[in-house]
């Protein structure tokens, strides 16, 4: 692995070939500032059905040991799919306007 992210690499520093020679480097690219709406998760109400987790396009629902633990605002783009898919009997996610 030879990638550098702190500054643009020059051509002699690139991995030999036409490739990104490590996985999941997009985690260094935060898309949280795209949000205009922010999902607020209520841990009390959550029934841990994981519907929000499996339908999140941005892998932004954090889960540990099969239980939801929160929302990763580094990557959440605020689409609100999670709030819509959350079962009505739980309604554990609210969308609020993002403070700028």
């Amino acid at each position: 692995m030879s990638m550098k992210f702190d500054r643009p690499m020059n051509w002699k520093e690139l991995p030999a070939g036409c490739l990104i020679d490590e996985a999941a480097t997009s985690l260094r690219f935060k898309t949280g500032d795209w949000r205009s709406m922010r999902p607020i998760w209520d841990a009390e109400k959550c029934i841990h059905c994981l519907f929000c987790w499996i339908t999140c396009p941005d892998t932004a629902i954090t889960v540990q040991d099969g239980k939801m633990t929160g929302i990763d605002y580094d990557y959440c783009k605020g689409c609100g799919i999670c709030a819509v898919i959350c079962p009505p009997k739980a309604s554990a996610i609210d969308m609020v306007r993002e403070e700028k």
Binding site: P8, M9, L14, C18, L19, A23
Partner: peptide, 25 residues
């Protein structure tokens, strides 16, 4: 062991560097 992404998208910031490296090879 080390998953990689082959043939990624370059924007204006990297295409030239990749081509220059290819010319060097």
């Amino acid at each position: 062991e080390n998953p990689k992404t082959f043939g990624p998208l370059d924007l204006q910031d990297y295409f030239f560097e990749h081509k220059r490296a290819q010319i060097d090879d």
